[in-house]
């Protein structure tokens, strides 16, 4: 019962054979070779597997790969094709991360927020990343970096 699905991952067209029970997360990691979405809880609680699905953040562990037929998937690798985004730069500069495991998901959740609200409040940033669990940082350094990145604006880098 394999299905061949065609989807766009980070700007590249992919055709992948999947079984109905395979999640998008498994297929991205094992069959597309994109490893930034992490396996943290596999039930939608932790946000480590966050990807952008037609521009909206979703948990890749809660999406069956067969559902992704015809859709556009963006991961951390995809938003920094042309160099780091301002957000990534600020997170590096302000050491807004520790173990780094949640960072890909957080960057994508914030990326979605900044597309919709380029000048968010601290509470809006917290709301946007509240589904991305981070056990290390205490979140404040991340919120600071987001606000700093928003202040500077995306320039021409999106």
């Amino acid at each position: 019962m394999k299905h061949t699905i065609e989807m766009n991952v980070n700007g590249e067209a992919w055709a992948v054979d999947v079984a109905p029970g395979e999640t998008l997360l498994e297929v991205l990691r094992e069959k597309v070779g994109v490893k930034s979405p992490k396996i943290g809880c596999e039930r939608g609680d932790c946000g480590s597997c966050t990807v952008l699905y037609d521009g909206k953040s979703v948990r890749a562990c809660l999406v069956l790969a067969v559902e992704a037929e015809g859709h556009e998937i963006t991961t951390l690798e995809g938003i920094s094709h042309d160099g780091l985004t301002v957000l990534q730069e600020k997170m590096v500069e302000l050491s807004s991360f520790q173990c780094g495991f949640c960072a890909p998901g957080i960057v994508l959740s914030v990326h979605e927020l900044l597309q919709e609200r380029p000048d968010p409040s601290a509470d809006e940033v917290k709301e946007a990343i509240s589904g991305n669990l981070c056990r290390c940082t205490g979140y404040d350094p991340i919120v600071d970096a987001v606000l700093e990145a928003a202040r500077i604006g995306p320039g021409d880098r999106g």
Partner: peptide, 16 residues
């Protein structure tokens, strides 16, 4: 001093 593992972890290069 900014962390020396920043690029690894913010670009997805860090391998677990």
């Amino acid at each position: 001093t900014p962390r020396i593992d920043g690029l690894d972890k913010l670009t997805g290069a860090a391998e677990y």
